[in-house]
Simulated scan of single mutants.
Amino acid sequence: MKKLISIIIITITLSACVGNDKIILRDSVGKINKVMVVAKTSDWTGDIGKEIKNSFGELMVGLPQPEPILSVSQVAPNGFSSMMNAGRNILIISEGEKESYTVRTNVYAKPQTIISVQAKDDESILKLLQKHKKDIRKTFLASDIKFTQNIFKKDKIDNSTYKTLSNLGVSFTIPSRFRTVEDTGEFLWLRNHLTSGIAKTGSNNILVYSVPLIDENLVAENIVSVRNSIGKKFIPGSDPETMYMITEEAYTPFTFDAELDGKKAYETRGKWEVKNDFMAGPFLNYTVVDKKNNRLVVFEGFTYAPSVSKRAFLFELEAIAKSMKIK
């Protein structure tokens, strides 16, 4: 009888863990923009570790203080146990006769991205890391974007309640903690007041608007002048006549090719300031070429958080921007 009960318990347990031949995975753990590297200590303290740290440690452009694109931590292979393998972003370095670069998802937990780099010796591993450096960073960042967007979906704003979004025919996955500053029907400004730690006097901000598409070849070079005109018109300082948002004159923004909602776009990162005042911070601008409607759709996020790191705030705005859908 006891044996029969044991068999029933095991069967129920297996049934609870398996459905449609798929094991139900536990939730992954780990901070946004952080990667756990599984590598021997000798590799981590040598050239392989140096290559990884230099690659992930490249500074994010447009931030007032130096902050890396990705943060890293290391664990030795013999320490990569069931206690550790639930990390959301994992890079595994190993030696083997077969050279390989693989990307796997949801192996030990969900959501999870595991990149494995294997080669016969240190020199070959270094070459693989250098060859796939951009792909590795892009894969982990894209994974974190998707993870962040899924969190926002659980408590998001109703886009139809905003005149500007309805009139422009655009939508975003924006967490409901953002509040309306202005919604004219042509220009939307949302703000999330930061409420924790030293940043509690700051805010994360979203701007959405459109401008006519006049010459597609001049879009990139006109991004700064467009945002300056919008700042002067809609983002005043304490004295609206003499104080308003502009692109920081002492810092040249960086503009990259991008794609949003399947459309050509430009990503611009830089610093904003209030003319004739002391307020400043980083901004992230996506200008999307909407040929169908002969216009440029602009999403801009900017952060005001004095004296604290701002990478996480900008990443949140990036995740929101990349959820854009245009009718």
Rank of each mutant, 00 (worst) to 15 (best):
residue 257 D to V: 00
residue 182 E to V: 13
residue 28 S to A: 03
residue 145 I to N: 06
residue 70 L to A: 02
residue 188 L to H: 02
residue 54 N to V: 09
residue 243 M to K: 06
residue 65 Q to K: 11
residue 112 Q to D: 00
residue 204 N to Q: 14
residue 207 L to V: 02
residue 38 V to M: 02
residue 141 L to E: 09
residue 295 R to E: 11
residue 233 K to Q: 12
residue 42 S to E: 14
residue 98 K to D: 15
residue 244 Y to G: 14
residue 212 P to K: 01
residue 281 G to C: 00
residue 34 K to A: 04
residue 215 D to M: 01
residue 121 D to Q: 09
residue 171 S to I: 03
residue 80 F to C: 04
residue 193 H to W: 08
residue 125 I to C: 04
residue 264 K to C: 00
residue 296 L to I: 08
residue 108 Y to M: 03
residue 5 I to C: 07
residue 313 F to N: 11
residue 160 S to K: 01
residue 81 S to K: 12
residue 27 D to Y: 09
residue 29 V to F: 07
residue 192 N to E: 12
residue 170 V to C: 06
residue 169 G to L: 03
residue 67 E to D: 00
residue 286 Y to G: 01
residue 172 F to N: 05
residue 211 V to H: 08
residue 228 N to E: 14
residue 116 S to Q: 05
residue 176 S to G: 13
residue 173 T to D: 04
residue 243 M to Q: 12
residue 104 R to W: 06
residue 9 I to T: 03
residue 13 T to L: 15
residue 298 V to P: 05
residue 183 D to C: 00
residue 293 N to V: 07
residue 290 D to G: 10
residue 65 Q to L: 13
residue 164 T to S: 14
residue 246 I to T: 13
residue 48 I to A: 05
residue 111 P to C: 04
residue 81 S to D: 14
residue 321 A to N: 04
residue 271 K to H: 15
residue 316 E to W: 08
residue 30 G to T: 01
residue 258 A to G: 02
residue 322 K to Y: 07
residue 64 P to M: 02
residue 240 P to G: 02
residue 229 S to A: 11
residue 25 L to S: 07
residue 316 E to F: 11
residue 145 I to C: 01
residue 216 E to G: 00
residue 94 S to F: 10
residue 163 K to S: 04
residue 63 L to F: 05
residue 7 I to Q: 13
residue 189 W to H: 02
